[in-house]
């Protein structure tokens, strides 16, 4: 008879971190409202950890009110993180546990591709640096990106013939030969084709809008980035049979000279 009641295990749980910069009840409520309207499913009953690591000094929020506001938006605060020495007492009185500050490594900025589309949103983020909301957003982005496994590029050296399909899952796809009419090359990341691209090329098929297609000879039937595609009719007007670089800006697929 097995009378074991439980087992203790170490496990990493991903949660949303609310990085608090400053606290004014009305402003906080308004910004939180904006955020939750933007992505209602994401915030529905989500557990959150409130980080005080970047809280401006001299700011002593009313933590009880802060927690009430969070709960009224269907968020479930489960702990505080990186609580400054001076606030320990006040925070402890809320009854929630106190977690140590996050690892330094975690906080290093991630290396990212500099893309025209992203440069824009970066500036808008700077403008509201002191808001609560963007910080929440960034943490979520990190969590999502960590889930996507990054694999080495898939390299194909022989021609991809009509009727054949190549899919580079979670990776970039490099084709050193040609892609025939009626063939399909698909990648979660970028696609590079060094021979003639006469078939279909679909980059970022799992929704990566930063994915790009590079080819030496653009004669494709269709190119698509994150589900936004253009057909050869349109392609014939841009860089047809020339080296080309294809990227997505919002929902517009752009074809430019390589």
């Amino acid at each position: 008879m097995n009378d074991l009641c439980f087992q203790l295990k170490g496990s990493a749980v991903s949660v949303i971190v609310l990085e608090l910069y400053q606290y004014t009840p009305e402003l906080f409520a308004r910004q939180l409202d904006e955020k939750t309207t933007q992505a209602p499913q994401l915030f529905q009953n989500s557990s959150i950890v409130i980080s005080l690591e970047n809280l401006s000094e001299n700011d002593t929020p009313d933590f009880a009110q802060l927690l009430d506001q969070c709960r009224s938006f269907n968020l479930q605060p489960m702990a505080f993180r990186a609580v400054p020495e001076a606030l320990t007492q006040v925070v402890r009185s809320t009854g929630l546990p106190l977690l140590p500050a996050a690892n330094r490594v975690d906080r290093e900025p991630r290396p990212r591709n500099i893309a025209p589309a992203e440069a824009q949103s970066d500036t808008s983020r700077d403008a509201v640096k002191t808001d609560v909301a963007p910080a929440v957003e960034e943490e979520i982005e990190t969590a999502v990106e960590k889930q996507q496994e990054r694999r080495p590029s898939m390299v194909i050296t022989r021609p991809v013939r009509s009727g054949q399909q190549v899919y580079a899952e979670g990776a970039d796809l490099v084709i050193l030969s040609q892609v025939s009419e009626g063939a399909e090359v698909i990648a979660d990341g970028d696609i590079h084709v060094y021979g003639a691209l006469r078939g279909r090329a679909l980059a970022g098929v799992k929704g990566n809008t930063q994915a790009r297609i590079f080819c030496q000879n653009l004669s494709a039937e269709l190119v698509s980035i994150a589900g936004n595609f253009i057909l050869s009719d349109t392609l014939r007007k841009h860089q047809w049979q020339q080296p080309a670089h294809i990227y997505l800006d919002d929902t517009d697929v752009h074809v430019v000279a390589l």
């Binding site: 022989r158 021609p159 991809v160 013939r161 009509s162 009727g163 054949q164 025939s180 009419e181 009626g182 063939a183």
Partner: peptide, 13 residues
């Protein structure tokens, strides 16, 4: 030509 390309793919695979 396209059908030949198709059969070449089958030879390859």
């Amino acid at each position: 030509v396209r059908d030949s390309d198709r059969i070449l793919g089958i030879l390859q695979s």
